[in-house]
Design a protein around this nucleic acid. Structure first.
Lengths: 114, 114
DNA sequence: CTAACATATGTTTATCTGTTCATATGTTAT
DNA sequence: ATAACATATGAACAGATAAACATATGTTAG
């Protein structure tokens, strides 16, 4: 039995929960990552990039947002390594950086489609 | 060739991007879902529930947050169907509602671990 | 019924975040 | 060099949000 008067859960349960909990910093980073997915403009951009790489202006036009907004959000996506950029003359083409993006979004879609 | 002077992408690329894009409402819902994962307190709660169902006070104590904060966040998690509640006397036990939660978090972890 | 307990709710506040506007940087063509 | 174009940056503003505090609801024990 526990000598901790504040917890109702068993001692070994408490222990296991605390043992399996990743360090705070990692949990913080994880939340930060999901925060990036937590905006419909950024989700739209990612969806557009599912099909092909696109330049900033095309993204803005396709999604009906301003060039500035697109640029700001692409920066967020890039910093968080969800997209990568390729420069060609005065244009910059963005594309998805890896398959995690697709997987995470798919899992999310599965959840809301229930 | 395109007669749209504003787009540089090919016509069929533009068409495909727009065709594959889910309706706005769905993209909004998807962003809302990820927003729920985008907070470290909620991530911690979900991680704690990986191990076992827990009552509100245990969650609060284990994570070092107030009962009120735990309750508020559990409400958000419940509304978004990430956790479910089971009442037992005056206590309410929360647990993960399905395996999507685990999968989404795992995918996120994979991404930040690179 | 009343006290003690467990959880939930409403409100306020401080902070964060997405968009817009104005402007800067960098590139290509003439 | 200058104009036109593509993208990025910085600042300001409006809306969103998590936490805290006070309080309410609901449950069990005595």
């Amino acid at each position: 039995m526990s000598d901790n008067e504040y917890l109702r859960a068993e001692d070994d349960t408490v222990k296991k929960v605390l043992d399996e909990m990743p360090p705070d910093e990692m949990l913080y980073d994880l939340a930060e990552l999901f925060k990036v997915f937590g905006d419909s403009t950024r989700i739209k951009i990612l969806y557009a990039l599912f099909e092909s790489e696109l330049c900033v202006n095309d993204i803005a036009t396709l999604l009906g947002i301003t060039q500035t907004a697109a640029s700001h959000q692409l920066r967020v996506l890039k910093v968080n390594k969800l997209v990568k950029a390729r420069k060609e003359g005065k244009m910059i083409f963005y594309s998805l950086s890896d398959e995690h993006v697709t997987k995470i979004i798919s899992q999310g879609m599965e959840h809301i489609e229930e």
